[in-house]
Amino acid sequence: MSGLIRLTPMNAEQYERFEQRSLADFAEDKIRAGTWTEEEAPQRAKESFAHLLPQRLDTPHAHLYMIEYSGSAGQNPEEAGYIWFNITEKTQGKEAFLLDILVYDSFQGKGLGTLTMKALEQEARKLGAVRIGLHVFGHNERALHVYRKTGYRITDIQMSKEL
């Protein structure tokens, strides 16, 4: 993988695009996981966002970044995706929790997921976090691969079977 990525704080216009895309993707993931019906998913996704990001981009403890990618030194960076994590105080210290990450389709397969997870670690450390947690849907094999590759281990498994 050649090239560099950088996490830059989202601006208001980027947040609007992030929210629209993230809401739709979250609703779809919940439908695929069998957690929500197609009818209820859009509203429930909006309710989740209202709870997790009550002040949207200005929500305390919420960190929303655009992923910028430069294929080579001197190349102008391109917007390649986004990442959202929150930092909360836990018994062992501050913990970052990854809520959403997306590398746009046109940048897939270039190692940007791995580089972004490494950038997340650096950013979380700067913010005082001693641990990073995340949730991944079982059907998201690509994300599972990236998380395992970057050193994450399974801490809890929830399973179901259709009857």
Rank of each mutant, 00 (worst) to 15 (best):
L102Q: 08
A129N: 03
S70M: 13
A129L: 07
A73Y: 12
I67W: 09
Q108H: 10
L98T: 02
L64P: 12
K126S: 14
E79W: 13
L64F: 11
G74D: 04
M117V: 09
T114E: 03
V136F: 06
A96E: 03
G128T: 04
L134P: 13
Q108C: 13
I101E: 11
D58M: 04
L127P: 08
H145Q: 12
G93R: 00
Y104R: 10
E121Q: 14
L120I: 09
T91V: 08
L102D: 12
Q108Y: 07
A96T: 04
A62G: 14
Q55A: 14
I67Y: 11
L134Y: 03
F107G: 15
G109H: 15
G113W: 06
E141K: 09
K118L: 11
G93W: 05
T114L: 03
L53T: 09
A119F: 05
M117G: 08
G128V: 03
R56H: 13
V146T: 12
G109K: 06
R142T: 06
I83K: 12
A129S: 15
K110V: 05
Y104H: 12
F85P: 08
E95A: 14
Q55H: 15
G81M: 05
V130M: 00
L115C: 01
K126R: 15
L99W: 08
A129E: 00
A129I: 04
L112W: 07
K94H: 03
V130C: 12
R142G: 09
L120T: 05
Q92D: 06
G128C: 05
A62V: 07
R125C: 07
E79T: 15
T59S: 15
Y69A: 14
H63Q: 08
K94I: 01
G111D: 06
E121R: 07
F137G: 00
Q92N: 03
G81Q: 02
I87L: 14
G128L: 10
S72A: 15
A80Y: 07
E95D: 04
W84A: 01
A62R: 14
G81I: 04
A124Q: 01
N76G: 07
F107I: 09
K118I: 05
K110M: 10
E141N: 13
F137A: 02
E78N: 08
K118G: 01
H135E: 15
R142D: 06
A143Y: 02
E123S: 09
I132G: 02
E141I: 03
Q55M: 05
L120N: 04
E89M: 01
A129W: 00
L112P: 11
I87Q: 01
E121V: 07
L112Q: 13
A73L: 08
S106V: 11
P54F: 02
G74V: 10
E121N: 03
Q108M: 08
A96C: 07
E121A: 12
W84Q: 10
F97G: 01
R125V: 09
L102H: 07
G138E: 02
G128I: 11
E68I: 06
N76T: 15
G81N: 02
T114M: 01
K94W: 08
R142Q: 11
W84K: 04
Q122M: 14
R56N: 10
A62P: 11
I132M: 03
V103L: 11
P77M: 04
L127W: 02
G93N: 02
L52R: 09
E141T: 08
G71I: 12
N86D: 15
A119P: 15
R142H: 14
L57C: 05
S70W: 13
F97K: 07
T116L: 10
L115A: 12
F85A: 05
F97Y: 13
L112S: 05
R131D: 01
